[in-house]
Design a protein around this nucleic acid. Structure first.
Length: 805
RNA sequence: GCUGGUGUGGCGGAACGGCAGACGCACAGGACUUAAAAUCCUGAGAGGGCAACUUCGUGUGGGUUCAAGUCCCACCACCAGCACCA
């Protein structure tokens, strides 16, 4: 068998005729939308891509046989670092880099025989596409969901650019490795936090692995608690301000011995006149500002802080005076940026209090000599309160409600929900991204372009680096930057930052539905027809953020009436990694990286597809190895040789059961992307056929259809040779439920749960009949001699267990 | 630390509470061959026995059940995500 010429023949045919075309509003077939996370345009395909594409392809091919109108599209995520870095390093124009990169990944997809509908291919850096990314931003802006604000951001002093958290992991710049610092800059934000509860709803409804759902819930970080307002007093006892503090442990309120405020909170500046050690405060603020966010969050670090002299707050439950500190373990952007510190019952407060010699008041039972007794410890035990006035002796559960009630009745507290998730920082000082459709006018402020001016095309530049002040490379494109304000007509400048890489990927599944529409991001009726993505495959690397961003945009688009559904995806399946021989993630940079194209050249696409997926389950990490690939090649050879032993037409009685079982098994496996067990079921079937040394025409036909989603090339070829017609014109074979049941099965007979014998029992037998057959067996009869039967268990087609004394 | 997941032969991995180790690789023996490769057949969890057979076996320790890899409790190890979130 010459797999090279066979595979070429079929690929040429498919990609010329496009039998995989998805039909809008198909009159009879139900729709099915299979999505693979589009390619990040950076180079060649790697093994990781096969983990997600091949199962999706198998599912798409299976569903087409099942009579579905399948949408299985592909595209490129092209804005972002790979193209820009290549431009900086080699001088290649990012447009050319992307064009070449797109061609590479699409060609390589074809060499794998992936059944994408290439007529719907999109690319995020194409103006026809990013016109609609800009349009979505415009809607966000016009609906008050996008705003510009001064904020602390990660900044690389060497590259002169703002970095996202993901581009600055471990406090080092992703591009140059320098230490990242915190800098205040004007930044764009999207009001994602507002959508927290809606996103939690999306998470609940989507079908996805529990660990991934949990990661998303953690990211959103919803918590319920109480917000208490403390009055701030000066030395003279005059009220000078109010300090709201959020807590989830209101039961510990009698244990407060200090309060701590995040150093950057402006509240302090307002009461500056009352603070006697202002210089010291300013010094501490400077010191913490220099430290990066990462350093601050490192738990290795010792607590630092500074007492705020001259002011105090009063605990409303007992009028106790409480000292005020600033401390950088308190995060400015969570809740109110201040904590009520209870050293006995919070480990951070405990450490801080030890260091600053602040007193402890224990209010819940437990041993606080070495560590704080935290809620994780006292809640399950339902311990009782101590030192808490009228609440002393109550259980925590009781006290929690009663204390909150008291504070609320006093008018100093309210119930409150908080989220860890912040608004989405949405700008980068980069060239290769979507320009904001925004003009900055000295008179009108930020002014949106009108829809008819979209797309705002990214201008050509020669210099892709930001300037010394960290202004975006686009600021150097003077002709482009200088413009008239769309509102007042006077001189203005365009926003020169660009959108982050995540923008284009936060709505792309919608564009596939109507990729060439120039009136809307997609036609509403088409969106309604195709609905949510039925199955979405891809890696797990950025899944938490990507899916949340996707939920956010889809919710927004739903609420403004641009799309008909709130949920973008019905089922999302994260694939495992492909590991190299050292158990590390296989990537281009990995020394042991094996290119899938190398394997395709050597063994063919069918074998490559099957071998990788025979190595392990879709969601598992699979170590890549050539070991065992022989098993797949010899399987394909055996399949090829089936042509020589075709005898008879209809399904034979010898193979009726096996064929029906294979059908049931493999259908389930394709639906659930369990290709490893699908392959093993196919192997078992071929083994049986080879043993019997014949296969009928109908059996071969059905078998080839069942194997086609995994090995599309060789099955197409054999089918054409034997049946003189096209496999893709077939429908999935049907089977009779009763063929799944053998007339007679061998089952195990146990006595006192130990296997004693095996007997053949008709599947139609009743319990009594089965047992009498078993008892007639010589070994059973001997073992039961002289014993009294206590209990008899018969699980049809599985087991008989006789309990006897 | 918190959350979620995983733990099965020499290896990759299978097992609706019902014969653990399917399927494949590697391995051993045999057939074919001058020989090798390829192919085909056979064997094999570990220990013991010439044998029929038998004991032990799914990270560890308990439990539920006629029956546990699977369910429950406790613990250990590894992987992933989050991590000073009040």
């Amino acid at each position: 068998m010459d797999f090279k010429s066979i595979e070429k023949k079929w690929q040429d045919k498919w990609y010329k005729e496009n039998p995989f075309k998805a039909v809008d509003f198909h009159p009879t077939k139900p729709k099915f939308y299979v999505l693979y996370e589009f390619f990040n345009i950076s180079g060649n395909l790697h093994m990781g891509h096969l983990k997600g594409t091949v199962p999706a392809d198998a599912l798409a091919r299976y569903k087409r046989f099942k009579g579905f109108n399948v949408l299985f599209p592909i595209g490129g995520d092209a804005f972002g670092l790979p193209a820009e870095n290549a431009a900086i390093k080699t001088g290649i124009n990012p447009r050319d880099f992307v064009e070449k990169g797109m061609k590479t990944v699409l060609d390589q997809s074809k060499r794998l025989g992936l059944s994408f509908d290439f007529d719907r291919t999109i690319c995020t850096s194409d103006p026809d596409y990013y016109k609609w990314t800009q349009w979505i931003f415009l809607q966000l802006f016009n609906h008050g969901k996008a705003y510009k604000e001064k904020a602390k951001v990660n900044y690389c002093p060497k590259c002169n650019t703002v970095l996202s958290n993901e581009d600055s992991q471990g406090g080092k710049c992703d591009r140059c490795g320098s230490d990242v610092i915190q800098e205040e800059r004007q930044s764009w934000f999207l009001k994602m936090r507002e959508y927290s509860d809606k996103l939690l709803g999306n998470v609940d409804r989507i079908q996805m692995a529990e660990n991934l759902k949990e990661a998303q819930r953690n990211w959103i970080g919803r918590s319920e608690g109480t917000e208490i307002v403390f009055d701030i007093y000066n030395k003279k006892g005059e009220t000078v301000g109010k300090l709201p503090i959020y807590t989830t442990c209101v039961e510990t309120v009698y244990g407060i011995t200090f309060v701590a405020i995040a150093p950057e909170k402006e509240l302090l500046d307002k009461i500056k006149g009352n603070i006697s050690n202002w210089k010291e405060i300013e010094e501490y603020r400077k010191k913490t500002a220099l430290r990066s966010e990462f350093d601050r969050l490192s738990d290795q670090k010792e607590k630092t802080g500074c007492k705020v002299e001259g002011v105090y707050v009063v605990n409303p439950v007992n009028n106790r005076k409480v000292d005020v500190y600033i401390a950088d373990f308190v995060l400015a952007n969570y809740a109110t940026g201040a904590v009520m510190a209870v050293p006995s019952h919070d480990q951070r407060d405990y450490e801080f209090a030890k260091k600053f010699k602040i007193p402890f008041i224990q209010v819940i039972e437990g041993d606080t000599t070495k560590n704080a007794v935290e809620k994780g410890e006292y809640l399950p035990k339902n311990s009782r309160l101590i030192n808490s006035a009228e609440f002393t002796g109550m259980t925590v559960k009781e006290a929690k409600a009663k204390i909150a009630e008291k504070l609320i009745n006093m008018g100093v507290a309210s119930k409150k929900v908080n989220y860890k998730m912040t608004d989405w920082a949405f700008n980068r000082q980069r060239y290769w991204g979507e320009p904001f459709p925004i003009v900055i006018c000295p008179h009108c402020g930020e002014v949106a372009l009108s829809e008819k001016d979209l797309p705002l095309v990214l201008p050509m530049v020669k210099d892709y680096l930001p300037d010394q002040k960290g202004n975006s490379p686009l600021s150097k494109a003077k002709e482009w930057v200088n413009c008239k304000c769309p509102k007042c007509g006077r001189d203005a400048k365009r926003e020169t930052d660009t959108m982050p890489n995540w923008a284009g990927s936060s709505w792309y599944w919608l564009r596939y539905i109507d990729p060439h529409n120039d009136k809307a991001l997609a036609d509403f009726e088409k969106l309604r027809y195709w609905g949510g993505v039925d199955v979405y495959t891809g890696g797990t690397e950025h899944i938490t953020r990507h899916v949340l961003y996707a939920f956010f945009w889809q919710n927004f688009l739903y609420e403004i009436g641009a799309v008909p559904t709130r949920d973008p995806f019905i089922r999302k399946m994260g694939s495992g990694l492909v590991l190299d021989s050292e158990g590390k993630k296989m990537s281009k940079s990995s020394a042991n990286g094996v290119s899938p194209m190398e394997v395709v050249d050597k063994y063919g696409a069918d074998v490559t597809r099957m071998h990788l997926h025979f190595l392990g389950g879709y969601e598992d990490n699979t170590p890549w190895t050539y070991d065992g690939i022989k098993g797949i090649t010899s399987f394909i050879d055996k399949v090829w040789s089936l042509q020589d032993i075709v005898k008879g037409d209809d399904i034979s009685n010898e193979h009726r059961f096996e064929l029906a079982s294979l059908n049931k098994k493999i259908s389930d496996d394709y639906e659930n992307l369990k290709l490893n067990t699908a392959i093993s079921a196919l192997m078992i079937f071929v083994k049986k056929i080879k043993e019997d040394n014949f296969i009928t025409k109908e059996e071969l036909k059905q078998f080839l259809i069942m194997l086609n989603p995994l090995a599309p090339h060789v099955t197409s070829e054999i089918f054409e040779r034997v049946f003189k017609s096209q496999i893709l014109d077939c429908t999935w074979p049907k089977y009779d439920e009763k063929d799944l049941v053998k007339a007679e099965v061998e089952i195990v007979v146990q006595i006192n749960s130990k296997i004693v014998s095996r007997v053949n029992i008709p599947t139609s037998a009743s319990k009594e009949e089965a047992l009498s057959i078993a008892k007639a067996d010589a070994k059973i009869a001997i073992s039961l001699e002289g014993k009294t039967i206590v209990k008899e268990i018969y699980v049809p087609a599985r087991i008989i267990n006789i309990i006897a004394k």
